[in-house]
């Protein structure tokens, strides 16, 4: 068998039968969106983040936790202290410590509390979702390659009818951009589902854009200061390099 393969390889070298590069990817390329936060001077769009947060609260949060984001972090979305306190107070949490009688008790959430998870633990979340665990969204953009574009693609990439020859089981949905295409999450967003107060169009594309803006911030809350610090650091280093080059040249100028 092996010898035969070797021999045929040699023959191929002579006859050169059709050779094709096998494509590496799976499914169509993810379209790139135009983001306010991309580029060296990118910043988050606060209004979009607020709308995105509204979508998260009204839609995503019924299944997906965001355990690493705290109400106090909402300051970055442009809310003030009182607003944050009111938002937090809409939720109740079980206090970490028991009360004086030794019983656990519920209290209104405070800005220092993390976002409230929809399920008590992963097992409860799986049980309620037909065995599939809805991932925590705090880091979802960083935890997926090309995160912001991928998630936008995922949210808008559902097809009601799978392509010819493909079948989708009950409780699964065809998604163009999901690896393997068969996704347990039902299409979460549709036109007009969440009402916007600022007159922004209530369309699926807009929703996806806004919620991804919010999720990108949640994954990478220090992006703005990171980039602005980086600019200063690099300018400083460039000037330093220029001065050092001149010092070095001057010192080396008397070497023959």
């Amino acid at each position: 068998m092996f010898i035969r393969n070797v021999l045929t390889t040699l023959i191929i070298g002579l006859t050169s039968v059709s050779a094709a590069f096998a494509s590496g990817g799976d499914g169509p390329a993810i379209p790139s969106q135009d983001w306010s936060f991309s580029g060296a001077f990118g910043t988050y769009d606060k209004a979009a983040m607020q709308r995105g947060y509204k979508i998260y609260r009204e839609v995503c949060a019924s299944c997906h936790a965001m355990k690493r984001v705290y109400f106090r972090n909402l300051e970055a979305l442009g809310y003030n202290e009182a607003q944050i306190k009111n938002i937090a107070a809409e939720y109740t949490v079980i206090n970490k410590e028991p009360n004086d009688e030794g019983d656990m008790f519920e209290r209104p959430a405070l800005p220092s509390d993390a976002f409230i998870s929809p399920f008590a633990n992963d097992n409860a979340a799986k049980y309620a979702n037909g065995g599939a665990l809805p991932p925590d969204l705090s880091l979802i953009v960083k935890a997926r390659g090309n995160g912001s574009n991928y998630i936008t693609g995922l949210l808008t990439g559902y097809e009601e009818h799978p392509p010819h020859g493909q079948e989708v089981a009950d409780g699964q949905y065809w998604n163009t951009y999901f690896p393997g295409h068969k996704l347990s999450m039902a299409p979460p967003l549709m036109d007009g589902q969440v009402s916007y107060e600022d007159g922004t169009p209530e369309t699926l594309d807009q929703y996806a854009h806004d919620v991804v803006q919010f999720l990108t911030w949640a994954s990478d809350p220090h992006m703005e200061i990171r980039k602005s610090t980086g600019f200063k650091v690099i300018v400083f280093l460039l000037m330093f390099a220029g001065v050092m080059l001149s010092v070095k040249r001057k010192i080396w100028s008397d070497v023959h």
Partner: peptide, 30 residues
């Protein structure tokens, strides 16, 4: 002067000295 350079120090060189000192000072500051 660590090299075996024997060229006489002209006014031009002296000017070079000050500039070098300034650049070194600047580099130290950076």
């Amino acid at each position: 002067d660590t090299t075996n350079d024997n060229t006489p120090h002209s006014a031009h060189d002296a000017e070079g000295e000050t500039r070098r000192d300034f650049m070194q000072l600047l580099a130290s500051a950076f």
